[in-house]
């Protein structure tokens, strides 16, 4: 089952967890399962049309999935996805 690692600002919306096990054969399905498990995450990740916010970066094995096949990028069973925040003040 793929693992999704959450950045610090999103953890309060996911019971303060850093890593969440998700179901899905693509990045899209994995993110959908994440927000099904923790619905309070949804407005922070997706816009009103259900598209991933352009400033949310999802990395698979060190690569931004936008440089792969976007949210249609296929996932291995033991894939590790990371959602990265922008860099805050200072």
């Amino acid at each position: 089952m793929p693992t999704l690692l959450l950045p610090m600002p999103l953890r309060p919306y996911a019971d303060n967890q850093r890593a969440v096990q998700v179901k899905g054969r693509t990045v899209r399905e994995a993110l959908q399962d994440l927000v099904d498990q923790y619905p309070r995450l949804k407005p922070h990740l997706f816009n009103g049309e259900g598209r991933l916010q352009p400033y949310i970066h999802v990395f698979l094995n060190g690569e931004d999935v936008r440089s792969l096949q976007g949210v249609d990028t296929p996932l291995e069973e033991n894939a590790e996805l990371r959602i990265l925040p922008s860099i805050a003040g200072g």
């Binding site: 600002p9 999103l10 990740l45 922008s86 805050a88």
Partner: peptide
């Protein structure tokens, strides 16, 4: 306007370590 944003250099104070 929220904890996940694309405004590099700015802090969302309610969810960050407060300076």
């Amino acid at each position: 306007d929220g904890p996940m944003h694309g405004l590099e250099g700015l802090k969302h104070m309610p969810t960050a370590l407060r300076p």
